[in-house]
């Protein structure tokens, strides 16, 4: 969910809207925001599953250290989505089946 109105920060300034693909679904994102922010705005909180046990993981640290939000971006695996800015047309997959990350 986007925070549109804010008592201190005022109305949200919407940047350039672009479309990205997440596991085949087209979603709207703000260019330059972290991929993880775009996903959370859509209520998508599961970013990956662990290779051995297939347990779900989502954004934890938000500063690129824990790697729980890693996804495959434009064919590159293990990209930390919390510190990687959105670009138009990005193709993102979540490895949600687990195994063989």
């Amino acid at each position: 969910m986007r925070v549109e109105k804010h008592p201190v920060l005022g109305d949200r300034e919407v940047g350039r809207l672009v479309t990205i693909s997440v596991d085949g679904a087209e979603i709207e994102a703000v260019e330059g925001e972290p991929i993880a922010a775009a996903l959370l705005a859509q209520g998508m909180i599961v970013m990956r599953r662990t290779p051995r046990f297939g347990e779900p993981r989502g954004v934890f640290c938000g500063i690129g250290r824990c790697t729980d939000c890693a996804m495959t971006v434009d064919g590159v695996p293990n990209v930390r989505t919390c510190v990687t800015p959105v670009k138009a047309g990005m193709v993102i997959t979540s490895n949600l089946k687990g195994g063989g990350e």
Binding site: R2, V3, E33, C61, G62, I63
Partner: peptide, 18 residues
């Protein structure tokens, strides 16, 4: 998923407005 650092939440709401 849904357990997060408080600082991570703060960045999401105040910087990215999510």
């Amino acid at each position: 998923p849904g357990v997060m650092g408080a600082g991570a939440i703060q960045t999401m709401i105040n910087v990215h407005r999510v």
